[in-house]
Structure formats: C-alpha cells, structure tokens
Design a protein around this nucleic acid. Structure first.
Length: 540
RNA sequence: CGGGGUGUACCUCAGUGGUAGAGGGGUAGCUUUGGGAGCUACCAGUCGCGGGUUCGAAUCCCGCCACCCCGACCA
C-alpha cells in the first residue's frame, strides 16, 4: 500500500481480487522472493531488499538495485517516483558538470512556465501528433468541498473551469518559441542560446524508475540561429558535449549517430543521439540533440532582419538529457551486490569505517579516522566516517556497497599501529593497504583509476556484445542467443525498418556518425544494396 | 491499450469461515565489533475500498480501485 495511498481510498467500492482469481492457479509462488513475481514493491528503507541476481531476472535486478541503493522510492502518484538523497545527489553531480560545459560554450540558463496554453501545442503539426497522446491537462483552478454519501470530499469547482486549458509541459519548444518571437527581431539578437533545468510530464503507459517516469527532470536547451549551418553546428556541438560527459563523468561509453525518420523527435528535421549499451545488451538512448530546421520558427512566426535588411525565419536546435541517465549509470556499472557508482558522480565517493573492540581501541581508532578524513577533505573529497555504534563493520560494508560508494576505507587497531588504512574498491573489491602519509595523493589517484577502469570495463562489455549480421534470420538468431548490438545493412526504407522490428523486436538504434558506409552490405530484409550500415538492437 | 500478477504491521510474506500471525525492521537495555551480531522487553494492522452471504468473513460471492511485471508506444 505504500503507493496506493490516499487516492485509492478516495471513494469507490471494493472487493476481492476478481481478476486475480480468474486467471488464478498459475504458478502461485514460483518466484518466492521479494517483489519478483508481481507483488507491488512498497516503500522500504532499502536496508533489507534482496537483490535478484542479473542472470536470474535482469529487470528485477535493476528494480532491486535502485531501491536497495536508496536512489528512489515509489510515490503515491501513478508513474511517479521520489528521488531520494542518494539518487538526487547523482543528479546534482551530473547537473553541476553539464551546466559548466553549457556555460563554457556560451549558453545561459533561464526558466519557462510549467503550464502551456493548449493552443500552443497545436501549432506545429508533427509536434502535436507526437505529444498529444501523453499530456496531462489542467482544466480548473479551484476546488470546493462537497458532501457525498455523508462524507466530505473535494471536487473541481465547475465555476472555475478554465476557458483555455493548460497542458503540463511534455517539453517546452512551444512556450519557448512563443517567447523567442518576442525577443528576436534582428540578426544582432542571434544566436540565442538558452537552457533550462526543469521537470516535464509525459503520461507514459508503462513506467520504470528513472528510465521512464511520468514526471522526470531534465535539461532542455533551445537555440536560435541566423543560418542553417550555425544551427547544425550547434546541434553537433551539443552531441559532442553529451558524449564527452557520458564517458568522462558517467563512465558510460556511447555511440553517436542519427535517428531514422521513425525515431525522430516530432518537429525535428534531424535527430542526433547518443546510445549506450546496458549489461543485458539492450540499448539506452542517453541523450538527443535535434536540428529543428525552421519548423518552430515558421509555426510561431519567428523572423529576424538579416544584414541585407530582409526578413528570414530563424534556424533552431533543441537538446536534452534527463534523469534517465541515472538509470543508465545503474544498468551500466552495478553488480549483483548492488549499486556501483563512478567516483565522479557518487554523492559520497569515500566512506570511512572504523573498527574497534575495547574502549581504548575505539578512542585511538576514532582519532585516526578523523585524521584520515581531514586529509581527504583537504584535497576536496566528500568523506563520511560511519561511526554508528549499533552496527558491526560487516553490516556497514554491506550497506555502503549497496549504496554504491566507490571507495571504502577501513580503519582499525592494526591500521593505527601501522599508521595507515585499508582501502577497498567497490568496483572490483580489490583491497590494499595505504600509508597515511600518501593518502592525499593515493586516494584521488585510486578514484581516478576506478573511474577509468569502469569506463574501460563498460567499453569492453559493449564490444563483446557487438557484432555483424547479414540477414534478418541471422539477426533474429543472434539476438536470441546473445542480446546485443548488431551492425547490418539498411536500404533506407521505412518498410524494411518496420519489418525488422516486427520480426525481432529490435529497432535501428542509429545510423552511426562513424562507420555508416554501406561497405557493400545488403539490406537485411530486401536484400537490396544497403544505403547505410546501421546498428540494430532492442532498446529501453 | 493488450497479457500476466499482487493488495494483511515500516518491509517481505504466511494465514480455505471461529480471539490478527511470522521473519526482518524500529525503540530501550546489556553483551558485542577486521564481511549482514546475540539475548531480553517493547513498538507496530479498520487485513486496498463498497456491498452481499453468514450466528460469525482477511478467508466465500458481486462490484470497484490501486500498484507491479511483460508487450505495443515514447527520453
């Protein structure tokens, strides 16, 4: 009941699980462990969630890891989650770094309203098509209490019905282009390079923590330019920023490419993307950068006067990454013991666990631990000493592992005597002693090493699951035997693209920026000469 | 929207018509502390909601609701 909360109780009736009964009989407790099978996970502290091994059930593993790592909890609102401090800390770290990159390339932050007049969304034909089905709508601005069956409830006050409803933004192009129309008049007003950090809402049919939630956090950049080339350059610049960011900060290797028309953002002329491979071989679209052409400028009639005194429609880009990246981090690096975070986005990169038996040991150990913490804080690291009295060290190890802390430092009587510490890496569990004297250099170096190793490990895992196929049958077989990314020929028609999807459930993830030459390949379906080499894979 | 499931304590669940349970958790105390500590006591539930059947319903019947998982659609 964690998540059904009050809404459920509001009214109605009830009874027994009719539906459950009808279909019943089927394997009662076959799974027999937490959450598997179909029991709705509720709120828990994360302290006692059993983590299903990846090999047993990958998507259950993912759900277990995000909860055991205390990244999120289910909210009492359909498809929505609470991002807990350990998860929000990742978002903040990621935000800090990306924001710096945006500023360094000339962008500024701004904020636009959550609510968008309904008519705005209708102005760009493809855009409406793309988003209309998943919008939440605000229809009233006031509630009133009413008596119903002897109970007092709240209902929208009919008198407060809005003349024009508002849409809760699924993305802000329309609002932003409305405003750009007011701000852009001359070539001197261009380029206009804005970004906003915001929440958006898309009423998705099926949600998954971080990967797809009804409400999510993201940044959306919206730029306006005088020429096509400039707008395209901007689109590509951002794509490079996204790639570098994912690889350097999240330790997620990505491939850059272009989406096919069927996967293109509604309203874009071209959608560029970065795709990452998760440990189960599926692809995760991790960021998109759209070349919008003049579509929104035309829909909102945004023109400028060029140096020759003529009026032209402006050229545009938009781009974004979301809290989905957190799901990508989890699925790329974590293991059967729980979360594994790259040091650069870990809310807590280092935890110190003191170990002692007697009172006099405790005193010496705590003094030592404080010394260690001071050294690390001095070099700019966030550190925590886990001085909880009621837990034994083993229990603390267990907990910090599940929370993904990259480096654990153990400090016990032996370490006091040796004037050193024991360090234990989360990513590979390597344990090594370190002298106190060298900590200021060794710990940051070790964290960098972990960061690099995680990226390389992820890259190696991706390469291992990447291959080439020549026919549809071969693709289907290979995907069945070993889910992954398969390069193959595509003749460029929507028909063969759709056929592949129908047969294999895999889609064209992208036409890679590098290596999309047909190279003599044939289309998997039609057998005609390929126009491109593309990457086929199952995707989230 | 199709298919499959689940709603009982903070969590995971057991409970086929007769006093509401277990394990974990939390609180307090004592003993512990180099990989999930032990003992004692305590805390904790309108059994998702509304009806019905019955002397009696968590349990049987009817009607709902919510959530989770798998698809289709999307970041």
């Amino acid at each position: 009941m964690g998540q059904q909360g009050d809404a459920a109780k509001a009214k109605d009736t009830a009874a027994k699980d009719t539906a459950a009964k009808d279909t019943g009989g089927s394997k009662g407790g076959s799974k027999g462990r937490t959450g598997a099978g179909g029991k709705a996970p509720g709120k828990d502290t994360g302290k006692d969630t059993v983590i299903t091994p990846r090999a047993e059930d990958y998507s259950q593993w993912y759900l277990d890891v995000v909860r055991a790592g205390e990244l999120m909890d289910y909210a009492p609102v359909r498809g929505c989650m609470v991002i807990r401090p350990n998860g929000y800390g990742i978002w903040e770290a990621l935000q800090r770094d990306l924001d710096r990159r945006f500023r360094e390339t000339g962008h500024e932050n701004a904020y636009f309203p959550l609510l968008i007049p309904r008519s705005f969304l209708a102005k760009e034909a493809e855009h409406v098509e793309g988003f209309a089905k998943e919008c939440a709508i605000v229809t009233h601005h006031r509630l009133k209490t009413v008596e119903r069956d002897g109970k007092t409830t709240l209902e929208p006050d009919p008198a407060s019905r809005l003349e024009e409803e508002y849409i809760i933004r699924p993305t802000s192009e329309t609002m932003i282009w409305h405003m750009y129309g007011k701000w852009i008049d001359s070539w001197r007003d261009l380029p206009l390079l804005l970004n906003q950090w915001a929440n958006v809402m898309r009423w998705e049919m099926r949600t998954r923590p971080f990967l797809r939630t009804a409400e999510f956090l993201w940044q959306e950049g919206h730029t306006a330019h005088a020429t096509r080339d400039e707008a395209m350059q901007e689109t590509r610049l951002i794509l490079d920023i996204y790639r570098d960011f994912c690889e350097e900060i999240l330790a997620i290797p990505v491939v850059q490419g272009v989406k096919t028309e069927s996967e293109r953002f509604p309203g874009a002329d071209e959608t560029f993307c970065i795709e990452a491979m998760m440990q189960n071989g599926w692809a995760l679209q991790s960021g998109t950068s759209h070349f919008l052409g003049q579509n929104f400028a035309k829909a909102f009639d945004v023109t400028f006067q060029n140096k020759e005194g003529e009026r032209e429609h402006v050229w545009a880009s938009s781009w974004g990454v979301s809290t989905r990246l957190i799901g990508g981090v989890v699925m790329t690096h974590s293991d059967d013991n729980g979360l594994v975070l790259p040091p650069r986005v870990a809310p807590l990169p280092v935890v110190i666990v003191p170990i002692y038996r007697k009172a006099h040991e405790k005193e010496a150990v705590m003094v030592h631990a404080d010394k260690v913490a001071a050294v690390l804080k001095d070099v700019g690291l966030r550190v925590k000493i886990d001085d909880r009295e009621n837990m034994k060290p083993g229990a603390k190890y267990y907990e910090w592992e599940r929370r993904g802390v990259p480096l654990r430092i153990e400090v016990g009587p032996r370490d006091v005597k040796n004037d050193g510490v024991m360090s234990v890496r989360r990513d590979n569990r390597n344990k090594e002693p370190m002298p106190l004297a060298g900590l200021a250099e060794q710990v940051p170096a070790l964290l960098d090493c972990i960061q690099r190793d995680m990226l390389e490990r992820a890259r190696a895992a991706r390469e291992e699951r990447t291959g080439d196929v020549a026919t549809l049958d071969e693709l289907a077989e290979r995907l069945e035997a070993s889910p992954g990314w398969y390069r193959g020929g595509w003749d460029g028609t929507p028909e063969t693209e759709a056929k592949v999807k129908e047969v294999t459930n895999a889609t064209i993830r992208l036409i890679p920026l590098e290596g999309s030459e047909p190279d003599g390949r044939k289309d998997l379906v039609s057998g005609k000469d390929a126009k491109y080499t593309v990457v086929y894979a199952r995707a989230y």
